[in-house]
Amino acid sequence: MVGAGAATPAIAALLHLAGNPGGWVRPVLVGGVVGMAFLLVVVPRQAVARNAHTIGGPIAYRIDAAGVHTVHGFESNTLPWSAIRTVRRARGQILIPHQGLSDSKLRMSSIPTADLAATEQDRLLAVLRSRGAALTNTPTV
């Protein structure tokens, strides 16, 4: 898209310098502007409409020895235990501040806990706070 957007004015400028043979300068510029507007406005809307069934869909969480995995309609991510700094409980969720996976920026992830029982929330919090070590220390009943 960027190449086409940059090429259109360059071609129009070359045509203008050549004396506008055949009167092509204006149609090339108009076509380039309309084409770029189409690519920047219509195509993203079509892509979202085509994938609307996955937008806002459920997010699945899996916690294992490697870290915290999230999966949703467009992507899946793994947050390794080494990246997690702290774990905090907030209203209806557990917040996980962590280092970015591709940079050193501090990022925030969250796991909703509204549908979990109090014991399940405590167990999840214990596993996250222990950075996965509590996965092997299951309480005996």
Rank of each mutant, 00 (worst) to 15 (best):
V41N: 11
V48P: 09
P44G: 03
T54A: 15
V30T: 07
V43I: 14
A65R: 15
S102F: 10
V34I: 15
S130Q: 06
G73Q: 11
E75V: 07
L79F: 03
V87R: 00
R88C: 06
A18V: 03
R50Y: 12
Q121C: 15
H16E: 08
I84L: 05
G35N: 02
I111E: 03
D115K: 11
Q93S: 11
P97L: 01
A37H: 08
N51M: 13
R89W: 09
P21L: 04
V87S: 00
R131C: 06
L39G: 12
P112V: 02
T113A: 03
R89C: 06
H69Q: 08
V127N: 11
H69P: 07
Q99W: 13
H69I: 09
S104G: 13
N77A: 10
V30G: 04
A90D: 15
V34M: 10
V33D: 05
R50V: 06
Y61R: 02
P21E: 05
G132V: 03
L29A: 00
I63W: 02
I59P: 08
A60W: 08
D115F: 07
P97G: 01
A114L: 13
R107S: 01
R88G: 11
R91W: 14
I94Q: 06
I84E: 05
A60H: 13
A49W: 14
G31S: 06
N77W: 10
A13W: 15
S76E: 14
G132M: 07
P112M: 04
A90G: 09
H69N: 08
I55S: 12
L40G: 12
S104A: 14
S104T: 15
P80I: 02
P44C: 04
S110Y: 15
L101N: 01
W24D: 02
A65L: 11
S109Y: 08
L79V: 01
L116G: 05
K105V: 10
R129M: 10
W24N: 00
R88N: 12
L79C: 00
A52F: 06
R26W: 14
I111R: 01
T113M: 08
A47D: 13
R129Y: 09
I59F: 07
Q99M: 13
P27C: 02
D64Q: 01
S82G: 14
R107M: 02
L101A: 02
A114M: 10
